[in-house]
Nucleic acid binder design. Structure first.
Lengths: 183, 183
DNA sequence: CGACCCCTATTCCTATTCGGAATAGTAGTC
DNA sequence: GACTACTATTCCGAATAGGAATAGGGGTCG
């Protein structure tokens, strides 16, 4: 069994497997744009402390440019460690923190109008998130066929789009049920 | 604006608003059984440190029984703080850590059979989680009509069931797409 | 009745995560 | 040259995670 990393370490390695050499700042941006739909984007401090650990273990290599900026690339060992993690350990079940569902649970503490307003707002937020992800998905076109670099990211993006559609349907159904309930 | 609590504090208060007086251990059990489908169940240590904070702020009251065990009940102020949190602050968007999607993203690092096996396992795990939640849902029947105590929990449980169904569909679709792609 | 096992109850421990803010430098625009 | 925004990294304290450790009690079995 390879060495243990927090999952976020594997996630950052994963982002680097697409070939780019990135600064910590760019990694954070990349995570904010693409990964945040299915894995919480790590905090800035975590990115840098994780890069330090990955570098210490030889899983990434830092390359300094002329101005002293460090860019990171994954090493062959890093790639192997991710591959091993994927083949030797179970993925595990998704972990969700759903504040809308949490507040819906406690709906008995407020009037129904407050809860309906929250659901309506959530539907809007879902639409906005879906637009963002659709834009990311559109950026993959042309390199998303099987065997191409972005094939798997396109499967993940399609998953996210379908998830947003499903959530919107469920939220609207819940709104309808609440409206049928009376005031 | 009321005082600030971590969301888990509100979540624990929320569990207590259903009327029971619970020990920390029972709260953890309750969270493990009912809340874990839409909010990660807090760690044991976190339950107790959170209860201490809620107690310090007068949001819960500890009642010791004969054997020295402490049970907690929400206070009127605690109920008011939750109500205010729900009406005065936005819910926010769900936060997801989806290890299956994360590994799917990195599918280019392993053979397709590994990724398909992970998706198949996830479908099984979804079915098991759905069975668990269906059981919780069944336990609400009889007290889940509008105006009744478990109405909102039943809406949340229905949401979770629909979410699991949707995830299973998406996972199966992804499996089909991968099979159509070749070996 | 004692041994054993499991459950209940709470504290303890370390590592990770969070959420940027703070700090510093650079590039582009006006 | 001033200003703004971006890039790059470190810093900080709090929250979360994940139980394990510790201790006590109840139920079952021989």
């Amino acid at each position: 069994m390879g060495q243990d990393l927090p999952v976020t370490g594997y996630a950052l390695l994963g982002l680097l497997t697409f070939g780019d050499e990135l600064t910590g700042y760019e990694l954070k941006q990349r995570a904010d744009i693409t990964m945040r739909f299915y894995w919480v984007s790590p905090a800035m401090s975590q990115i840098y402390s994780e890069l330090a650990r990955l570098s210490d273990r030889g899983l990434v290599a830092a390359v300094a440019d002329d101005s002293g900026t460090s860019r990171y690339r994954i090493t062959d060992e890093g790639r192997e460690v991710v591959r091993e993690w994927m083949t030797e350990t179970p993925a595990g079940f998704p972990v969700l923190k759903h504040p809308v569902a949490l507040r819906l649970l406690m709906g008995h503490l407020t009037d129904a109008a407050t809860t309906r307003a929250m659901l309506e707002r959530y539907v809007e937020e879902l639409a906005a998130a879906r637009r963002d992800l659709a834009e990311v998905r559109a950026g993959l076109v042309g390199r998303d066929e099987p065997g191409q670099n972005f094939h798997h990211p396109s499967l993940v993006a399609d998953w996210g789009l379908a998830y947003f559609d499903s959530e919107a349907r469920i939220a609207r159904r819940t709104l309808r049920r609440m409206s049928a309930d009376g005031p």
